[in-house]
Amino acid sequence: MKKLLTNDEFNRALLSLSKEYDIYAPVTLPFKGTFSDTDLVKYEKITKLEEINLKDKSYYSAKEILLPIRQTIFYFNENEFKKPEGRTKKALVLLRSCDLHAIERVDNIYLNNKFADEYYADAKKMVKFAVIGCPGKGWESCFCASMGTNTTENYNLGLTFKDGAVYTHIKDEELNEFFNDGKEEEFQMEFVTENVEKVTVPENIKLEDIINDEMWRDYDRCIKCGRCNFVCPTCTCFTTQDIFNRDNSKTGERRRVWASCHVDGFSTMAGGHEFRQKSGDRMRFKVMHKISDYKKRFGTHMCIGCGRCDDACPEYISYINCINKLSKKLGDNNE
C-alpha cells in the first residue's frame, strides 16, 4: 500500500503504533556530543515526527537495538542459572538503506553462521524496519554507493519526507491498520546514487601479499580507543563478564559486552601472549575482515560504507584512504 500523509496524519499513525511498538529513530541529544558544546545524534524511542533528526547522520547505528552494548545472558546462584526475559514489546526502527544492509551483515554473524545465537534470534523476531530515504550525495564521509548499500527493497515500511508531507510504502500487512489516514499516492524512495567519497575495494586479496607491508606502520599512531569499532554498524565482537552480587558472592549475572579488536587485551591468550601488539597490525586485521575475510564466507563485503569510523577517529585515521591506498598498492584501482 502506498499513501501520502500530512505530518499530522503521520503523527497520528506513530501514536497508534507506539501502543504496540517501541519506535526508534535518530534523535538529537543536546550537548551530549564529543565536546561540551556539541550534540549527539543516536537512536532513541520517539512518538512523533518532530523528534526525528532527518538532517544529520547518526553517530551510532541502530545495531544496539538488536545487539545491546551490555546484555545479561543469564542470572546464576550456586545451584542454577536462569535466562532473563527478552524483549516483550515489538519494535519499529527507522533507519537508512546502508544501516539496513548492516543489519543483514550482523544477521549472517549471529543467525547464519555455524549456529544461531538465541538472544539475537529472539530480538530479531520482534523488530520491523522502516527505511528513510537519503536525498543528494549523503554525508561527507559516506561511500555507500561504492559498497552497493545505497539502495534496498527489503524494508517493512518505506518513508520519504518531502514538501511537508510523508510518502509511505507499507509492505508489511501488520502495519497497514495503523495508516488509516492519507490518500493513495505513488511512492518514490530517495536513494543516494553517488557519494562525494568513492572507494575501490581490491578483489582476491592474498594476506601474504600485504601482511608485512610498511603501509600498516602509518596506522601505529592509533591510540587503541576502539571508537571505530563501537560506532561501526557491522562490528559484532563482544567479551563476557561475570558480575557477582556484593551481598552474596555466590549469586550474580553473566553479561556480554561490546568489545574491540583495537583495544589492548582483546586478543590476549592464556599465558599473556598477545597477538597484534602494534596498532597498525590491528588496523590490518580489521580492514581484512571488512573487505576480504567476511566476503569469503558470506559473499558480500562486511563494510557498508557509512563512514562512521572516519567521523569518530580522534587521530583522523581514514578507513576510506586506507582501502584506496591498499587498492592502488595491489593494482586494482580502475580510475
Rank of each mutant, 00 (worst) to 15 (best):
residue 134 C to E: 09
residue 18 S to R: 14
residue 141 S to Y: 09
residue 19 K to H: 15
residue 276 R to K: 11
residue 87 R to A: 11
residue 334 N to P: 08
residue 96 R to M: 02
residue 327 S to V: 03
residue 189 M to L: 14
residue 101 H to G: 02
residue 236 T to V: 03
residue 103 I to M: 01
residue 20 E to N: 13
residue 130 A to I: 04
residue 10 F to P: 03
residue 296 K to L: 06
residue 124 K to E: 09
residue 226 G to N: 07
residue 187 F to P: 02
residue 268 T to G: 01
residue 13 A to H: 13
residue 274 E to C: 12
residue 73 I to H: 10
residue 127 V to D: 03
residue 194 E to M: 09
residue 97 S to Y: 00
residue 207 L to R: 15
residue 199 V to D: 02
residue 121 A to C: 10
residue 256 R to S: 08
residue 130 A to M: 08
residue 297 R to F: 03
residue 113 N to Q: 11
residue 310 D to C: 03
residue 187 F to C: 07
residue 153 E to C: 06
residue 238 F to S: 00
residue 180 N to I: 14
residue 317 I to L: 14
residue 239 T to I: 08
residue 13 A to F: 12
residue 224 K to T: 09
residue 135 P to L: 03
residue 87 R to V: 11
residue 326 L to G: 04
residue 267 S to T: 11
residue 142 C to K: 09
residue 118 E to T: 15
residue 177 E to W: 12
residue 287 V to Y: 02
residue 270 A to K: 07
residue 175 L to T: 03
residue 29 L to R: 14
residue 287 V to N: 03
residue 22 D to E: 15
residue 224 K to N: 12
residue 113 N to Y: 10
residue 75 Y to R: 14
residue 9 E to R: 12
residue 266 F to C: 02
residue 5 L to V: 09
residue 292 S to A: 15
residue 279 S to C: 08
residue 88 T to L: 11
residue 196 V to D: 12
residue 271 G to W: 10
residue 30 P to I: 12
residue 231 V to G: 01
residue 35 F to P: 07
residue 117 D to W: 03
residue 233 P to V: 00
residue 131 V to K: 05
residue 255 R to Q: 15
residue 124 K to V: 03
residue 221 R to Y: 06
residue 77 N to R: 11
residue 6 T to N: 12
residue 49 L to G: 12
residue 321 N to G: 12
residue 263 V to H: 04
residue 252 G to C: 07
residue 236 T to P: 03
residue 185 E to P: 01
residue 6 T to H: 10
residue 101 H to Y: 01
residue 307 G to N: 04
residue 217 R to V: 05
residue 313 C to W: 04
residue 113 N to K: 09
residue 317 I to D: 09
residue 218 D to Q: 06
residue 118 E to V: 12
residue 318 S to T: 04
residue 234 T to D: 05
residue 128 K to G: 11
residue 164 G to N: 06
residue 64 E to R: 06
residue 235 C to F: 00
residue 295 K to M: 05
residue 72 T to R: 13
residue 217 R to D: 13
residue 286 K to V: 05
residue 54 L to T: 01
residue 259 A to K: 06
residue 21 Y to D: 06
residue 100 L to T: 01
residue 239 T to M: 04
residue 42 K to D: 13
residue 57 K to L: 01
residue 146 S to A: 04
residue 103 I to R: 00
residue 176 N to G: 06
residue 132 I to E: 05
residue 188 Q to E: 15
residue 279 S to M: 06
residue 70 R to S: 15
residue 34 T to A: 13
residue 170 I to L: 09
residue 283 M to R: 02
residue 327 S to D: 07
residue 146 S to N: 02
residue 139 W to K: 13
residue 207 L to A: 15
residue 33 G to Q: 15
residue 331 G to I: 08
residue 24 Y to V: 03
